[in-house]
Amino acid sequence: MSLFAVVDPVMQGLLLGGMYALFAIGLSLSFGIMRMVNIAHGDIIVLAAYVTLVVVETLAVNPFVAMIVVVPSLAAFGYVLQRVLLNPVLGDDILPPLLVTFGLSVIIQNLLLAVFSADPMGIHADAVQTASIGLGGGLAVGVLPLIIFASAVAVVAGLELLFAFTGLGRAFRATSDNQTVAQLMGIDNRHLYAVATALALAISAIAGSFLALRTTFVPTLGPSKLLVAFEAIIVGGMGSLWGTLAGAMLLGVAQSIGFRYNSGSGILAGHFVFLAILLVRPQGLFARARRS
């Protein structure tokens, strides 16, 4: 086996991990702050991809410029979604929020089907989609995967700074620790939750725009994005955003190698890594030690 055959899939997989991390961060935020899992998370990413497509086509702008519209739109959608649909069902019982977001997932998927049909769509607008940098020895990395990876690192770093050094970040952490006592500190948890969802959807919008740039997409793609996001969180260890990035990279490498071996087993290889981690180290690879 040549060096190329080993290095290339690993390198592509690591970069793919950047994309998966962007899928995962929003989901991780919702769970970390509200103990809520949004089953429609993947569908919202796909929705963002379609919104990007519409903005690019109607305004005839570069996809990166389109993100200036797409990201705030989805953040606003997230704020309203949380206040109108999700806050009323949030509580000790995990069933209502799961079922509401499950219903939302079906609604979004079928709305997209009704409006855009099941035909694959894509954005062909930018030279960055095909550009790559040669590294010698036949190795090359795409410029777009590099930009996506750098964005993922920037988002994780930005969120870590937000949590560590801002009043909003403190309020998020306090609410995550104990939402009742947080209210006694003057924190409006309904507003804070809506801000958290707005943030999660803003990041999902970035992920969706990149998804639209990277591949073609169909309305039913959402669940697979949810699953890979979920796997990245569990593999990386809950409560650690850097862990999520690492988990996403590990999944990316597993899928990339699996894909080389047999084009039908890429995603399966990722699932197996997830199941193996769950059996061997259920708290994840980089779980933050939780003092209770």
């Binding site: 403190r170 952490r173 306090a174 995550s176 620790d177 104990n178 006592v181 947080a182 006694l184 003092r291 209770s292």
Partner: peptide
């Protein structure tokens, strides 16, 4: 609050 209820991650 009773039992202090501090935020452990802060």
């Amino acid at each position: 609050p009773e039992g202090r209820c501090l935020f452990p991650s802060l």
